[in-house]
Design a protein around this nucleic acid. Sequence first.
DNA 1: CTGTTAGCGCGTTCAG
DNA 2: CTGAACGCGCTAACAG
Lengths: 354, 354
Amino acid sequence: MREVAALAGVSAATVSHVINGTRFVSDEVRGRVDDAIARTGYVSNVLARSLRVGTTRTIGHIVTDIENPFFAEVARAVQMDALRHGYVTMIANSDEDPAAERLCVETLIERRIDGLVIAPCGGSVNKSCFARLVEARIPTVLVNRDIRGAGMPLVTVDYRRAGYDATKILLDKGYDRIGVVAGPHAVSSTAERLSGYAHALQEREVAPDANLIFHGIGKVEDGYNAGKRLLRSASRPQALLVFNSSMMTGLLAAMNEVGLTTNDVPAVVFQGRVFDAVLPEVWSVRQPTEELGRVAFDLLLRMMRDGWSDDGGPVGGSRVSAMSRITAVRAELFDPKVPSPDGRSKEPVSGGVH
Amino acid sequence: MREVAALAGVSAATVSHVINGTRFVSDEVRGRVDDAIARTGYVSNVLARSLRVGTTRTIGHIVTDIENPFFAEVARAVQMDALRHGYVTMIANSDEDPAAERLCVETLIERRIDGLVIAPCGGSVNKSCFARLVEARIPTVLVNRDIRGAGMPLVTVDYRRAGYDATKILLDKGYDRIGVVAGPHAVSSTAERLSGYAHALQEREVAPDANLIFHGIGKVEDGYNAGKRLLRSASRPQALLVFNSSMMTGLLAAMNEVGLTTNDVPAVVFQGRVFDAVLPEVWSVRQPTEELGRVAFDLLLRMMRDGWSDDGGPVGGSRVSAMSRITAVRAELFDPKVPSPDGRSKEPVSGGVH
DNA sequence: CTGTTAGCGCGTTCAG
DNA sequence: CTGAACGCGCTAACAG
């Protein structure tokens, strides 16, 4: 910067003002400065600026598994939207492990992020670490999973309704014994989908059966194990609800082994777009990941701009005073029976282990 | 920091040395400092440190599509390995768009990254932007795709061999007319796989047919369009080589529409683990993504540590003098005919549109 | 063994 | 309309 200033025959202050447009500079001087910048290939030091200004224009984004297409899509949306607004995103993986999550949060706080979008891992193990976030006054929004008592805004899918609707699809087709390949107990999205499932059963006066529910952490092996357990039993389910596509993959491998197809055991898969176009009697529920990410970032942006009230959510004048802590988006159903280029129909359902 | 120093009754310098272990501090003083740090909740300002030290312990990672499982897996490996070594990763999406790629690179340079791992987008459009990287002396390693004349080290899969082996699987089963659902012309991994394909055909004295090759950019729609074009023609291929799993999904939708299954048209899919366990007559070639990411970061780490020679690759004493610019890893074949929990066999092939 | 000083590169008063 | 001086928080060189 000094170099540029010298070359343009002005002071460093003027260079700064030219760059930031922060006060009037005569056209002639501005010209000389711009020229010098171009000639020097000067790029202003963001570190020094951040140090001075106290803001990094960097946000953090912690997910439990970037390899999960669901989170990959959310991450992509967050990242793109952030970039459009001049923010850079640091994506980190917690791997569904509280210790790793803590490390991620610490690291990001240390890096002085301006805000955080996080899909927390199950349980409320990491209370202290979330406490540090509020203590450091770092605006934070939760995506997809709630944390009881964290007092942070949440952007999510209406999973209870999604679970309800998905179950009803199968009930309407005449299946009563519906098995579930679910995610971890402690994760709110799992709990809510199960609650919707239970509600749908109850409406039809179908007695719930705990043996029909399998909990995994969402990996391929979990689906395989679920298949081995659920399909082998004497009274095997007539149909299945599968909470993500990785587990569906494992499930299909298990079905292969015992000589079953989805004609024998129809299924509804959350975020299972890969399957619904290809396999008979398979439907999928799509969560609008792009919207989830975008909404989350926009909320964060408002919090970063307008400040942050401790009861969660952006503080503000009357304009946003009625905002609830939870923003939920709806999901859609893909029906393979009406094939189209991407194998989906327009028939909407609501919301979709993530 | 001053606060901590005051509380402990020492100077700022001592606090710094306690934190960094950069010179001997008496146990008593160290105790007082640690105590003050704990009491204050002080977290040292990485920005100021970076400004002083000239290094950010941050690396960039640019991929063409984070939603592509292949890149997600590579990114994860890079990120995890980097974290283990105290580096934070900024992941950015170029979206297969040279302009976006340029923006990513500029942004990351501005952020003063210490190094970069990049899967460049096709073509050599962005020469100038890569020039800026060498100009700024930012160690860079390419993953998965080469750039002619960039003089940067490349970590990749042996795609030529992978293409050759994948083709031979089908030839050995007696199929001569093999269609290809490929990636963009300009991408080296596509070109190399096609070269392996051509080589395998030539060995069997099968005449190549340009009408059998379809180029897409790797999306679901591309696979669908490929299916419409290749399968509808009078002389349709007996079998298919599909360059990634998204295109396979689209292809299957197209097959569905025309009433074909993979029994009619067998296929080998690159990185198609989702399919091989589930569909008959489908094999997949897996690229070792985790290894790719790890090897790339390790190489980058050496470059950041030991300096960087202009002919590409880390400079060094005799120890690494014989290192070639290209590091290639081998891929494996998954055979669904020997099902196991994750539906793979041990039969290896070598290395998948990315 | 520890304290003092100077400067990394910027943005921002305050004088002119 | 522009320049000089200060400080953001930290580390490295030097002094004791």
